[in-house]
Write a protein that binds this DNA or RNA. Structure first.
Lengths: 337, 337
DNA sequence: GTGAAAGCGCTAACAT
DNA sequence: ATGTTAGCGCTTTCAC
């Protein structure tokens, strides 16, 4: 393959490489006549500037990486769409790093940031600790996070008010006549899960109900673990009539377990998930869940991270707590007693 | 941020840059003693080689781009996982290009290939024509396709035997007592849709049933268009008792329309989709569909494209026709009459 | 408005 | 086994 470079174009158009570069980047004015000559040469050669050389010289790649636990989960896919669209409108490209639920990959993918393949990284994952993230940022790497809040003036954060969300779910369940509500958490270390649990406890307390530790089970945000956690709950022989799962995937696991055990949703067991994953609106019975403005959250974090990359001194708001919306569908729409 | 480069490390370790490079890339032997000195300097400086400079010099980026119509559709997400894992095991990175169902983006994203941001591109999309793809490849760009077959010795292809698939679906439906089976196609120009239609016609002919053009409607592989297409079918007032949709998304649109029109699936209308999208196994009634070995297909195309990138002369098989499996679930599991 | 030339950080050919 | 150096294709400073 014949590969043209900027000097070939310069020669063909009888101008200097600097002029071609200036024209390509609109970085300085060029007479209309020169412009036409250059354009003609470019056309004739079918020339495309080499982005790698440009990146090296300009020390920018105009690319961001996004880490998600599993791109197959529509919650993450929707966030990524928001990121992609905002980034694209600001002329940034996106590397999607799909961890496929393998934690180790979180570290591997950081190399994209360290080795300058991308200008910044967005973490939609709980894997790296706050300290690790802060340490990278203090070395000058640009990172934005979604779904968690890190208190550092150079880290843009977009997250949901999980405490409020948890309280809202619990009070809805209570209003439906439930007194004993189980909670299925995600990873123990995931802040999302943690704060939803906090909301759950506050909701219980506000209503004057006791917090029963035996009604809490750990999962890992995946369907299988939700399934297992629910089975453990049943095996314990504790009484409960509702489940609040820290995300939809785990709630799906509860559905599966209920089907196997012949437990009727919502008559015998109310189920509420979180994320408003696409599937929740198709499954029978339709699942109650909590919607987050995923697309907007993605767009917001992309915008703010790009701001951060281009400014360094951060101009204004950096932390965004967004509201979620409880969506009551069939799986919890049944008044007990 | 202090950015170390290879010459800094060389100075710190009292060796030449070549030695550092050689050590980093294991491209030639280095004495254990030098190795340790260099390692120590790298550690001390917290040095990571600049991938952009490396890419420029080596004229490789070790990255592939993958175009998909919509990463939120689990069919594509699964293929991408296969690609990602194979690529990653061969030390390649992946750029996911999510078209978000906007055709124009297909062309925009090609710039990643043209400007050398990636070494190759995998198209899981029907948007570019065979001619366009061939033209790129003839210019030396490396492209692999999935879901279609392009007759060119340098283009690896992995695709499903859609004709066989179509016949299988139709004969299943016929065996359930259906005589008038509607077909919902995807884009008119999509080869997948085209060949499935071909299989549908052959299946009909084999059974001695007539092909009725009024039972064919066009969609675009999305739920909305499937919904509309089905409504048009109904509005035509033609008689039919089964629908074969060219993919699950459109079949989902049929579900929605049936619900609105109070048509019972499968008793009054059998529905079969294609792709075995995750949602088909959760929706009520569970949807019959055709499974393709998505993950394996993704892995295969990645492997073959990387082969092609590294060889140029293509060694062996380039075209892979894989088999699909009809999965009969509730939406077509009802014998008529 | 345009050109000459330095240099981004790395690899690899050539020399020792 | 190790060092020297040219050069990958581009942007940008400094002249003019």
């Amino acid at each position: 393959m014949r590969d043209y470079k900027i000097s070939d174009i310069a020669k063909m158009a009888n101008v200097s490489v600097a002029t071609v570069s200036r024209m390509l980047n609109n970085s300085a004015s060029v007479t209309e006549k020169t412009r036409r000559k250059v354009l003609e040469a470019i056309e004739k050669a079918n020339y495309t500037p080499n982005a790698v050389a440009k990146n090296l010289r300009s020390k920018k790649t105009m690319a961001l990486a996004v880490q998600v636990p599993d791109i197959g989960v529509s919650y993450f896919a929707d966030i990524v769409k928001g990121i992609e669209n905002m980034a694209s409108s600001l002329n940034y490209k996106i590397f999607i790093c799909d961890l496929q639920n393998q934690k180790e990959k979180a570290y591997e993918y950081m190399s994209l940031l360290l080795n300058r393949t991308v200008d910044g990284m967005i973490l939609v994952t709980p894997d790296l600790t706050d300290e690790e993230i802060v340490s990278y940022v203090d070395q000058g790497y640009k990172i934005g996070v979604i779904g968690r809040h890190i208190d550092h003036r150079e880290i843009p954060c977009v997250y949901t008010d999980n405490v409020k969300m948890g309280k809202e779910v619990v009070s809805h369940l209570i209003s439906q006549g439930h007194e004993r509500i189980a909670f299925l958490s995600g990873f123990a270390h995931a802040i999302d899960s943690y704060t939803r649990l906090e909301g759950y406890m506050k909701g219980l307390r506000d209503a004057g109900y006791p917090f029963l530790p035996e009604l809490i089970e750990n999962g890992d945000f995946n369907e299988d673990k939700g399934y297992e956690a629910f089975k453990r709950l049943i095996a314990k022989n504790v009484h409960f009539t509702a489940v609040f799962a820290a995300n939809d995937e785990m709630a799906l696991g509860v559905y599966k377990a209920c089907q196997e055990l012949n437990i009727k949703i919502p008559e015998e067991m109310a189920v509420v998930g979180v994320d408003n994953t696409r599937i929740t609106n198709y499954i029978a019975p339709k699942m109650s869940t909590v919607d987050q403005p995923k697309y907007a959250m993605g767009a917001l974090i992309a915008e703010k991270l790009i701001d951060q990359i281009n400014d360094n001194i951060y101009r204004d708001q950096r932390v965004f707590k967004v509201d979620s919306t409880l969506i009551i569908r069939e799986s919890s729409n049944y008044k007990r007693k």
